[in-house]
Amino acid sequence: TTYKLIANGKTLKGETTTEAVDAETAERVFKEYAKKNGVDGEWTYDDATKTFTVTE
């Protein structure tokens, strides 16, 4: 399944996707990606669109 991340960070803005077996796995991947890019904010997830959003 393809999951999408929308990053609304102070230093990183944009979108990326990952293939994962479930939302929990995708969330781990995206949180690691955000951490590597210095983004720390509020996370939301929309199951209907398989989209995570992080906003600083």
Rank of each mutant, 00 (worst) to 15 (best):
T25G: 07
E19N: 13
V21E: 12
A7G: 05
A48E: 14
T16K: 09
E19P: 04
T11E: 11
A26D: 00
V21H: 12
Y3C: 02
T16S: 10
E56P: 07
I6F: 06
V54E: 01
G41K: 01
T25A: 14
T1K: 09
T53Y: 14
V54K: 01
K35W: 11
K50N: 08
D22N: 10
T53M: 09
E15N: 06
D47M: 08
V54Y: 03
T18P: 02
T1R: 10
T44Y: 10
A23Q: 13
T44I: 08
D47F: 07
T51R: 03
W43P: 00
D47A: 15
A34G: 03
G9H: 10
Y3N: 01
T11L: 12
A34C: 14
G14W: 15
Y3T: 01
T16G: 04
G41L: 03
K36S: 13
V29Y: 15
T16M: 14
A48I: 12
T16R: 09
D40W: 14
K35M: 13
E32V: 07
T18F: 12
D22Q: 03
D47G: 08
E27V: 05
A7T: 15
T25W: 07
V21K: 14
Y45D: 00
D46P: 00
L5N: 01
E42C: 11
E32Y: 06
K4E: 02
E19V: 15
T53R: 08
G38N: 10
D40A: 11
V39C: 13
E15Y: 13
F52S: 00
T44C: 11
T18Y: 13
Y3F: 12
Y33C: 05
T51E: 04
D22C: 05
A20K: 02
L12V: 09
T55N: 10
R28N: 08
E24Q: 11
D46L: 04
L12E: 06
D40R: 12
T17N: 06
V54W: 04
K35G: 06
A7D: 04
K35R: 14
K4R: 12
E42T: 14
T44N: 09
V21R: 12
F52I: 01
Y45P: 00
A26M: 02
Y45W: 03
K10H: 13
E27T: 04
V29E: 08
D47N: 08
E15L: 09
A48P: 07
D46G: 01
A48Q: 11
G41Q: 02
G14R: 10
E27L: 15
K50D: 02
T51C: 05
A23D: 05
V29L: 13
K50P: 00
K13G: 07
T55C: 08
K13M: 12
F52A: 00
D46Q: 04
K13L: 12
T51H: 02
T18A: 08
K50V: 03
L12A: 06
T18R: 05
V39A: 04
K35N: 10
A26G: 01
T49N: 07
E27Q: 09
R28E: 07
Y3Q: 01
T51D: 01
E24R: 09
E56Q: 08
E19T: 13
N8W: 11
T53G: 03
T17K: 08
T53K: 06
T11N: 14
A23Y: 15
D46F: 04
E24G: 09
G38Y: 06
K10T: 14
R28S: 08
T17L: 09
E19G: 04
I6M: 07
A34T: 07
W43K: 00
T16W: 15
T55A: 06
E42W: 13
T44P: 00
L5F: 08
F30H: 01
K35L: 14
N37F: 13
G14C: 14
T44R: 09
N37M: 13
A20V: 04
G41D: 02
E32D: 11
E24A: 13
R28H: 09
T16F: 15
I6K: 07
K13C: 15
A23N: 07
F52Q: 00
F52L: 01
V29M: 10
A48D: 12
K31T: 04
K13V: 11
G14N: 09
A48T: 13
L5I: 03
K36L: 13
F52N: 00
A26W: 01
N8T: 12
K35I: 12
V54G: 00
K4A: 04
A34P: 00
V29G: 04
W43S: 00
T49Y: 04
A7Q: 07
W43G: 00
G14M: 14
T17R: 09
D47V: 09
V39I: 14
A34E: 01
A23L: 10
A48N: 11
K50E: 03
D22M: 03
T11S: 11
A7I: 15
R28I: 10
T2S: 07
N8S: 09
T16D: 04
T55H: 08
G9E: 03
T44K: 10
T2V: 14
K10Y: 11
K13Q: 14
R28Y: 07
E42L: 13
T1H: 13
A34L: 10
K36T: 11
T44A: 11
D46K: 03
W43I: 03
E56H: 07
F30P: 00
L5T: 01
Y3A: 01
D22R: 03
T2K: 11
E32K: 06
A48V: 12
V39K: 02
D47T: 09
D22A: 03
E42D: 13
A20Q: 09
T11V: 13
K13W: 13
K50A: 05
Y45V: 01
T53C: 08
K10D: 10
T17Q: 09
D46T: 05
Y33L: 09
D22T: 05
D22L: 04
E32L: 09
T44S: 13
L12D: 05
A48W: 08
V54H: 02
A20D: 03
G9Q: 05
E15S: 09
E32G: 05
G41H: 02
E56N: 05
E56D: 11
K13S: 11
G38W: 04
E19W: 15
E56C: 06
D47H: 11
G14Y: 15
V39H: 05
E24K: 11
V29W: 15
K31D: 02
L5W: 05
E42M: 12
E19M: 13
V54P: 00
L5P: 01
W43T: 01
T1D: 10
E42I: 15
D47L: 06
L5M: 07
K13T: 10
N8R: 10
Y3P: 01
V21N: 12
T25P: 02
A23T: 09
A34V: 09
I6R: 06
V39P: 02
E56M: 07
D47C: 08
K31S: 04
W43C: 01
F30V: 01
K4I: 12
Y33M: 06
Y45C: 01
K4W: 11
A26E: 00
Y33N: 03
Y3M: 01
G9V: 13
T16L: 15
K10C: 14
A23M: 13
T1G: 08
E27Y: 15
T53P: 00
K50R: 12
L12G: 08
T11G: 13
K31Q: 07
Y45A: 00
E24V: 11
T2E: 09
K36E: 13
A7Y: 15
A34D: 00
F30C: 02
T1C: 11
A20S: 06
G14T: 14
E42V: 15
G38D: 06
T49V: 05
G14F: 15
E56S: 07
T55F: 09
T16Y: 15
T2C: 09
R28M: 10
T16N: 05
Y33F: 12
K10Q: 13
T51Y: 02
N8M: 14
T17M: 11
E15D: 06
E32N: 08
I6A: 05
Y45I: 01
K10P: 15
T11F: 14
F30E: 00
Y3H: 02
K35A: 12
I6T: 05
Y33H: 05
N37H: 15
V39N: 03
K50L: 08
L12Y: 15
T51N: 02
